[in-house]
């Protein structure tokens, strides 16, 4: 049994029948493998799970904490909330239903062997629709080429961070959607861990096209000013073009005296101008829109309530007061 304290962070949002077996399996694995552990279930605004069901889980299993977020904030924010609260020497994040709890000890072993960050990497994306696979490929290519960040392709939420790496990550504060990128970006030794995710059918939530796009966009915008640079380059190019065109018009005007300035040319020029302007403005807006989030101290999530297991008096406890 390893003499370390391991925290497992698992975000759920209306997990349905998945919840109870997941908690049982995970606690079982942790109790066998580690001297100290905690399983932090981050309840990302579930509505369908009743209080009695949560109570039953907390009464049955030791070492479980539940963080109820005030509403649904999304998987990334839910994980950030869990990371902010985890106390372990090593912290594992995972998606219940997709990532098998039996692999946790192996993931932690790799982190203890020296890699501060171990990233789970799915062996195949066979279960994903074509657009998600194509989009992912495009994203990783862009990250590698343009952002100079070597993200392991197909990295999942199944990962393990050492306390030092987690502290550094938490310092960055905007843990939200940057989680994936920063894990390999904060400069700690990282390793990837290929594994087979369990059937996608058990995944507690599936990603829509919009979700995936928003996530990729957020990660790019949060991590690099590259699109902004692109926009300014575009702006410069457009300006140069305009300049050349103006020179050409002037030259024509100087050399020939039978020209009446054409309505068509004029409108073409302004149309092109406005097109470029619009592109530039769009990119700028994306950035400006992010400023308050970045500097406003917005935690990104709100915890409504936190509760922990109390199982000691299981057999002989007729009336335990649950809420403190």
């Amino acid at each position: 049994m390893a003499d370390v304290f391991v925290s497992v962070v698992a975000p759920v949002s209306d997990p349905g029948a998945l919840l109870a077996p997941f908690v049982a399996d995970t606690v079982g694995v942790l109790a066998r493998a580690f001297r100290h552990f905690e399983l932090i279930i981050v309840d990302d605004g579930s509505r369908a799970v009743t209080r009695a069901e949560w109570d039953a889980l907390l009464a049955r299993h030791d070492g479980v904490r539940v963080l109820h977020l005030s509403r649904e904030f999304g998987e990334e924010q839910a994980i950030a909330a869990g990371l902010d609260n985890a106390i372990g020497d090593f912290v594992v994040t995972m998606s219940p239903g997709a990532d098998p709890p039996t692999l946790i000890p192996e993931l932690v072993r790799r982190a203890r062997d020296g890699a501060d960050v171990v990233l789970g990497v799915r062996r195949s994306r066979a279960g994903d629709p074509w657009w998600l696979r194509a989009g992912a490929a495009l994203f990783y290519w862009y990250a590698r080429r343009m952002m100079r960040m070597d993200l392991p392709a197909n990295a999942t939420h199944f990962r393990c961070l050492s306390r030092q790496a987690l502290n550094a990550l938490n310092k960055l504060r905007e843990t939200g959607s940057r989680l994936r990128v920063f894990s390999s970006y904060i400069g700690y030794a990282s390793a990837s861990y290929p594994y087979d995710a369990v059937g996608e059918t058990r995944r507690s939530r599936s990603r829509t096209f919009g979700d995936a796009l928003a996530l990729a966009l957020a990660m790019v915008l949060d991590n690099t000013a590259h699109p902004l640079r692109l926009a300014s380059l575009l702006g410069v190019a457009a300006a140069l073009l305009n300049l050349g065109y103006a020179a050409y018009v002037l030259a024509v005007y100087a050399m020939r005296d039978d020209v009446a300035p054409g309505w068509a040319t004029m409108s073409l020029t302004s149309a092109a101008q406005f097109f470029f302007l619009a592109v530039i403005l769009a990119v700028l807006c994306e950035y400006v829109g992010r400023l308050p989030k970045r500097f406003g101290g917005d935690p990104g999530y709100y915890v409504r309530e936190e509760r922990a297991s109390a199982v000691l008096l299981r057999e002989d406890r007729p009336n335990v007061v649950r809420d403190p």
Binding site: L312, L313, D316, P318, N319, V321, R322
Partner: peptide, 30 residues
């Protein structure tokens, strides 16, 4: 480590002295 209530309508089933003699693993590492 554990909470329970007694007295009044709740009856009197658990004795603190009994609980104190069956201590759970320490939470000091936590």
């Amino acid at each position: 480590h554990a909470r329970w209530s007694d007295g009044g309508d709740d009856g009197h089933a658990v004795r603190g002295e009994g609980v104190r003699h069956r201590l759970p693993p320490s939470h000091a590492p936590h």
